[in-house]
Design a binder for these strands. Structure first.
Lengths: 214, 214, 214, 214
DNA sequence: CATGAATGAGTCTTCATTCAT
DNA sequence: AATGAATGAAGACTCATTCAT
């Protein structure tokens, strides 16, 4: 499965970039510190120290501290999320899931793995979303689009076979996402040690299948 | 129902306190600003300005900015939450719900109302929880305690009547909380206008009842 | 003569202001340093050091370094120059000079004294005018207005008596100003020790009277 | 007339120099930027960008930013000014002006043309003279020397014919220079569009002739 | 010669905190 | 109790200068 190495998309985007080794160290250090302490509680001196570079180097490529934040999050929104989503839907299309349980199992497992593989990016996102609702709205819009375009037809298919309740896609998606996030976020926020992803997937799917049955 | 005016518990805790009118204004201003901009992006000068007091007055009672934060959140954790929870359980006990649907409907509705009534406090909490996992752990511990002590017996009762699936209380609670938060949090974070709480309650209960049916 | 204590207008404007003693010290130190080293070569640390205050105090009243500059120069443009000009014209009107020589002698002497009394402010002005032409244009506009409104009628009077050549006021003014500045500016720029103002006045008037005679 | 292309003296000094094309570009860019924004407000990165070279190249020949400044101004003081002055005096000697008016007309016109042709260099000079009196003193000394050696005898000649008032050369020169600068400097500082040099020359000469007549 | 990444001292500015009045 | 001027330790950011390639 291609998606459990999503973290490597960030690493790859670093390699593809024309950033020097030190600039990459700056991004890596920033990622760590933003996730650990939050954007506001991370100073550019902290970043320089952890990256092992001078403070001037931090500002050579990135004009402002906010630019660093965006250099980390923008690829996540503009590339990682859509890319991942793209692979996600491609997988779904090509896989040709025989029933809703198969689809749900794949999707839940995939998203849990994705979320845990990107703990730090996710945490930074959550922090910023809470601090600045603007980003929440941007994400919500993007998610809503993915939903109505990508998921609704998929749901329709299983609603026709009588495997999925006849609620609108937004409502169904909301319950799925809530349940998955209820599992992933505590781990992301509290640095909980790795848990049994397969078992969690089975449990969540068991609950959702019943809750979403007609 | 007593719980939809939980906000007044904060107000009451202000009245009970030995704080002067200006000190109370400081707390109120801090509550607003912390919720709007976050703790880190709120300066003590901001607080003084909004409270209509001098910067010196802010520090007369509260030795540090962090003290203000704790003056807001500690009562919330140590009094408001337990108090609310206490009323919540008292209500449950005295009400004597005839079936699980009644209990779930009450509980979901009550928590939605509580969450929406305390948007600002909730947002501050979420911000701090994400920024500093320590508070998350403290809350998780407290919640876990409430669960095993308060909810598990309650669940047992309906599990015995065959209305509730035989999963452990933590798992059941996690799904319920996730689903409710999936409705409340977007509203809290994005300042979404008021929605139809009763309809949302019905929908959520409909989903949960199926998902949690044996 | 009221105008040879123009420097006290700045001092007076300090006293009238609601600035604390330390804030006034900041302005005084800034005036000295801006004049000595120029705006760009003066750091806010320099200002704090010379004023004997902390760097925070510098920024308590003035939000930016540029604000300090404007706190010094704006009164100069908006009050000192017009005020001085006002007194200048008042003096001229009430004095009722019998001939052009009397007027010119008074004016030249007065402007030399004014310029030398305000060496530092003048130097700051010249520095900024050269660095940023915008201020030059603002001043030129103001000066032009004073000219056509205030001086042209005065010149007309002596042109009618045949004491002053029939050139337009701008041209006449330009020669007078050039000649006076040719005396004052070197002293302002090079910190030349005090010279004999009365003799210089006599010499300049002697030259101008001939040059401007019909 | 050789002197209205004095700018080419700078270009020539660039050609004569052993500087590479890129080094010359650095000097040209510096000239432009120093004149536009001032020395302090021009960064070496600005210079490199406008010159189309790397920052390293800027420092290959010039050890410090100040060196660039001096590479521009020193030739101007040490070569351009004297050279120009040399041509100026040579012209005067060989021309053999029949009367003081002819001399003055030539000199005024020549200096106006010179000043306008070298706006940018002049502006840099004025900026530095105002910011650092040291350069003023150096220039004043040099000018004083040119005066007493070069001009005084010339003046003497016309004082003997009764065309020029019997003041000392410094005083006469000061009035002439002041009046010419009063015309040239505003244009240099404020980027005023080209004006009628010939008319201005006539007017200035008309004024000076009267003012300097015995 | 040329490059441009890297440096670190220094700049302007903010802000939690103190204290004399 | 209340004020608000004062503080100084950071914080973000700039820039002249160096040096390995």
């Amino acid at each position: 499965m291609a998606l459990n190495n999503v973290e490597s998309l960030f690493a790859a985007s670093l390699q593809d970039s024309d950033l020097s080794a030190k600039q990459k160290a700056v991004l890596r250090a920033s990622l760590t510190l933003f996730a650990d302490k939050g954007y506001d509680r991370t100073s550019t001196a902290d970043i320089a120290r952890l990256a092992g570079v001078s403070e001037g180097t931090v500002y050579k490529r990135f004009k402002t501290k906010r630019d660093i934040f965006e250099a980390i999050t923008t690829p996540f929104v503009d590339q990682v999320l859509p890319t991942a989503a793209g692979e996600f839907f491609k997988e779904i299309s090509t896989a040709g899931f025989p029933d809703f349980r198969s689809l749900l199992t794949f999707a839940v497992h995939d998203r849990i793995v994705f979320g845990l593989a990107n703990r730090r990016e996710l945490k930074i996102f959550v922090q910023e979303i809470v601090a600045d609702p603007q980003m929440f709205n941007a994400l919500a819009a993007r998610a809503s689009q993915l939903f109505t375009k990508g998921l609704a037809p998929l749901f329709k298919q299983f609603q026709d076979t009588g495997e999925l309740v006849q609620w609108d896609a937004i409502r169904i998606g909301r319950y799925i996402i809530s349940t998955v996030l209820g599992y992933v976020l505590p781990s992301v926020i509290a640095r909980t040690p790795e848990q049994n992803v397969d078992q969690a997937t089975q449990e969540i799917v068991e609950f959702l299948l019943k809750g979403l049955h007609p």
